[in-house]
Design a protein around this nucleic acid. Structure first.
Lengths: 85, 85
DNA sequence: ATATTATTTAGATATTTGTCTAAATAACTA
DNA sequence: TAGTTATTTAGACAAATATCTAAATAATAT
């Protein structure tokens, strides 16, 4: 669990996707347009974020809408906090 | 900066080293004894943790003592917190 | 001086990862 | 039904990573 979370966060592109989704939900194409990386690659990053439970997806007709899931970040927060004492 | 931090955290062995150092300072050999991984590999992990500023090292005679540096975790905390709103 | 102990550096290798293009799937539109 | 648009899946490949053994460095002890 922590493994897939840290893995997902260990990539600049994926962290930027998270930050985009912080502001608003976006579909895969909109996300891909923000990067100079192919759509299949973005799709792969989305998959990794999803496996880490950092984002969720919902089909909206022809599009797939992605949203940030912050609840998993609670675990990261408490992990960090136990280290700080 | 965030890059080397997330990279350092993206490994179970390194996270375990961090948790060991949370309790007390240890030298390289003591740390290595806790894992079934060769000393050179542990040394490499310590190097990555050090580059990420997560640990510090100090020579104590023949030994090198490693300590946890929690101040860098502030940055991780605030990164997570800005996501949560 | 020599030997022993602690740790790192060097070099090799297998696995994982990020990226790409081409093809497949799925939904809408004319 | 065909054609277009949105997204993913498959397969390939180069770069990065975790690990190992052997050798180098540094400090202590006999």
């Amino acid at each position: 669990m922590m493994n897939s979370l840290f893995k997902a966060l260990n990539d600049e592109t994926r962290r930027q996707i998270i930050e985009l989704l912080k502001d608003k939900d976006m579909n895969a194409g909109e996300i891909a347009d923000r990067f100079q990386i192919s759509k299949p690659s973005i799709s792969h990053h989305l998959d990794i974020l999803k496996r880490a439970d950092l984002i969720t997806s919902e089909k909206k007709g022809q599009f797939i809408q992605y949203s940030l899931n912050t609840s998993i970040l609670e675990d990261l927060l408490s992990w960090v906090l136990t280290l700080k004492k």
